[in-house]
């Protein structure tokens, strides 16, 4: 499967613009490691949405390594920095074991991050692997959310359990868990309505859905994915924290990485909350959801332009 970076380059209609000034410029412009050099490095990290805190942690570590290893060459410093972030973003080798087990995937996040689209894409991935997939459309709030997911389910060729608009989403979950048992499915993917993490009632509603799944399907492997918009800034940390209180998050789906946003906030979240990024969304096609590749992510974070690659 082509990496998301190649796919990016292949998208001829999309060009990266000059304003995406990358780290290469920083490295090319310096012959020695000094304060200006560090400062500019810091800028690149902050402009990638890594955030003030995570950036200063990373920079402190970098300075220390540079001191310890007596590095004077900016190029080596670059390798060190990339290595460091890569190390942090690395995923466990068992991260995708659930794909071959009986699994319930609970997909949650704030409004407009791409939950429904991601659910459709996940269904297609598992369907292509020959799994028996079933989808639960538990977003009964947003107008036409169910219709949107039905369309995706059609494209993926997976059956879908729906409820009326305005119905209690918990009832959809209940129906879906029953169907999952009765039809002996492999994977149940639950789409939920987008909600801001500071709305207590809506978060309670989510917790209730979570409890129903636990109760109806005990002992079955669970994955709770938070979907984060790659263009989101520091607020994503709050999102991950609050949603993590509702259900133990096992992974992040990072969407909208086909634009100019770098999704650097994921670095901050991984370093602060240790939730791995498992999938990335790189387009609107049904196949545009891929397993997360730390190496490509770090490259993209620091690369000037597609053409350069």
């Amino acid at each position: 499967m082509a990496g998301f970076f190649e796919k990016l380059a292949a998208g001829l209609t999309k060009t990266r613009d000059k304003f995406v000034k990358g780290i290469d410029n920083v490295f090319n412009g310096y012959t020695s490691i000094d304060d200006d050099f560090y400062e500019e490095l810091e800028e690149v990290l902050i402009m990638g949405d890594i955030g003030v805190n995570a950036t200063s942690t990373i920079m402190d570590r970098l300075r220390e390594h540079v001191r310890e290893q007596h590095i004077t060459d900016p190029e080596k410093c670059r390798a060190l920095l990339l290595q460091d972030i890569w190390q942090q973003m690395k995923i466990d080798e068992h991260a995708y074991d659930f794909e071959d087990k009986k699994t319930i995937i609970f997909v949650i996040g704030v409004n407009g991050v791409g939950k429904t689209t991601s659910v459709g894409k996940l269904a297609a991935i598992f369907k292509n692997k020959g799994k028996k997939v079933i989808i639960a459309a538990a977003d009964t709030y947003r107008a036409a959310a169910t219709e949107q997911l039905v369309e995706w389910a059609d494209r993926a060729g997976a059956p879908i359990i729906t409820g009326r608009e305005g119905a209690d989403p918990a009832s959809v979950i209940y129906d879906a868990t029953s169907a999952f048992k009765a039809r002996d499915c492999d994977i149940l993917i639950v789409d939920t309505a987008g909600r801001l993490h500071n709305k207590k009632n809506l978060m309670e509603e989510l917790a209730k859905m979570n409890r129903i799944i636990d109760k109806e399907l005990p002992g079955i492997c669970r994955e709770n994915f938070i979907v984060l918009d790659g263009t989101t800034g520091q607020n994503a940390i709050m999102q991950a924290r609050e949603f993590g209180d509702v259900a133990d998050l096992t992974g992040i789906i990072l969407t909208k990485l086909d634009g100019t946003a770098k999704g650097g906030i994921a670095v901050a979240i991984v370093s602060e909350l240790n939730i791995p990024v498992k999938y990335v969304g790189v387009g609107e096609g049904i196949d545009d959801l891929e397993r997360f590749s730390p190496a490509e992510f770090v490259d993209a974070l620091f690369l000037d332009s597609v053409e350069k690659k």
Partner: peptide, 27 residues
């Protein structure tokens, strides 16, 4: 989106330059 990060500048600049905008709404 009020939650947008550093990319907000790119988004606003490009929409304004390419399409031309008259106003902004923060969601």
């Amino acid at each position: 989106d009020a939650m947008t990060g550093q990319d907000a500048v790119n988004v606003a600049t490009q929409f304004n330059e390419k399409v031309g905008i008259d106003g902004i709404i923060l969601s």
